[in-house]
Every structure is written in C-alpha cells, then in structure tokens.
Design a protein around this nucleic acid. Structure first.
Lengths: 128, 128
DNA sequence: CCAATATATATGCAGTTGCATCTACTTTGA
DNA sequence: TCAAAGTAGATGCAACTGCATATATATTGG
C-alpha cells in the first residue's frame, strides 16, 4: 500500500509539474488508442481500467470537454455509445507518455534490476 | 497499480460490508495505539501514514466526532496539539483488525507462499 | 528586542468520488 | 406480444480531496 502510494504520488506529481492531466486520463486514452478503430464502449473501458461506472461517465465528460474524445451513437443498441479518441486525444496520449515513461523509469525501473522487475511482475500477477 | 487497486478495493469492501469505517481510520488509530501514551502530534501521524496535512486534519475531526480520539493541548508549543486515542478508539482498532486481518489473509496471504511473500516484501521495500 | 521568517494546524472553495437512483432502451418468457 | 426483468449510461447529492491560504505561535538574525 505504502509503496504504491508513494510511487503513484510521485507519478501524479510529475504529471502536474509538466502541466499535464492526471494518470486516469492516460489510462483511458491508452485503452482507446490500443483498441480497434480507436473506440470502445464505456463498459469496455470500465472493465479494462477498473474505473467505477459513474466515475468513468464523468471522466469521459471531461475528456470530451477537452476535445480528447468524442461520444458517437452506437447503432446496434440505442442505450449505448462509442467513445472515440480524437487526434488531439492521440497527441495528448503521446505527450503524456513522454512524462509517464520517464516517471516509471525513475520511480520504479531505476530501483529494480531486470530480474527483480520480472519477479515483481510475476508476484503482482498472483494477486489478481 | 492494478493489483494494489484491486486488493485495496477488496479490503475497503470488506470493511464496508462489516459496517466499519474505511482503512484510513485504522491506519491512524493503529499509529496512536502503538505510540507512547497512545498519543502523537498530527505531524507525526502525517509522517507515519503519508496522509496529506489537510486531509489528516479533517480525518482527526471525524475521529474526534466519533469519540475515537481526543485533541489535547500541547504545552511546550501552543501551536500544536496531541491526538490521543480513547478507549473507544482502541476498541474500534481491535474490532477493525478482526476484519482487516482476515482481508489481508484472503486477498494477499492466500495468494502467496511464505517464501513469495518474503520476496514480495523485499522488492516493495526497494521502491521507497 | 523586534521584524522577518518559519512551523503547526485549520479552513474556504472548487473539483472529484461514492452512493443511490434515474432514464432509456433491450431481452426474456409466459 | 407485452409485462417483468435486465443492461447501458447519466446524474443529484453528500462526503472527501487538493489547493491555496488563514491563523496562531515560535524562532532567528540584525
């Protein structure tokens, strides 16, 4: 708990210092960029990011307000919608990654050897 | 991040199901119970728990309102105060531990061998 | 000794979260 | 075929957080 708290705080601080939005934005943008056609249904993002439904709904609002994503109709089911990443969203994702990757290297990578990192990842995956 | 998020969510859910307050309360109560005379200065709790100063200030308000701690004057420095754990606070800490220890066992202990847990702890400690 | 600076804690405000519930469809099954 | 149940997503409200700043007291250098 403590280790995660410190690492996460350090990463968020790096984002803030760089004038970038918080980590949650990155997670959503990244899922969208990875996804087919750069779009996902909200419930798919929810499952991939572990964000709560009501939080995600409002996070999408914020991303949309910044022009990083766009909601589009989902024809097969009028209840649903697509969340589509815009070019600005892709650019923001890439920009955030510059800071994020450095943060990961600084706050995690530099503190573990290659072998330790592998062991660590294996142990973490057991906690699912 | 993901593993911690899941484990923490599971633990918080266990507390909620048991009708108990959130994990943050436990952390503060436990620091106080461990401390000499069951009391600490707010800034000492802050350092031990990684809570932000303004969050801790208000968490103490809530604990005080529930009668789990009490603020007392700190004579050597009129700016400061003691936070003293009450008997009710000690009882709550003990009660929470019943749920918490089971949660840890379920969500972490059961998923790692003794040896793995040791390795895990050693790796986590490198991230400080 | 005192003005400037530093420290300990609290708090107003705006933004975020959690909870419960709402709306708007879809699916199911008698 | 239609009422009941289920699902996708949004939202009002209260609690919590972060930020900036306030308040009150201590310390320090000239």
């Amino acid at each position: 708990m403590r280790a995660q708290q410190r690492v996460l705080a350090a990463i968020e601080k790096d984002f803030k210092t760089a004038g970038l939005p918080p980590l949650g934005w990155y997670d959503v943008l990244w899922e969208l960029v990875k996804a087919d056609a750069g779009r996902l249904r909200p419930f798919e993002i929810e499952a991939r990011t572990l964000l709560a439904q009501y939080n995600l709904s409002r996070l999408i609002d914020r991303l949309e307000k910044e022009g990083l994503v766009r909601r589009e109709a989902y024809d097969e089911d009028a209840r649903g919608c697509w969340v589509v990443v815009t070019d600005a969203g892709r650019a923001m994702r890439a920009l955030m990654w510059e800071t994020y990757s450095r943060s990961i290297e600084t706050h995690v990578g530099a503190k573990l050897s290659e072998q330790e990192a592998k062991t660590f990842a294996a142990l973490l995956s057991k906690l699912f």
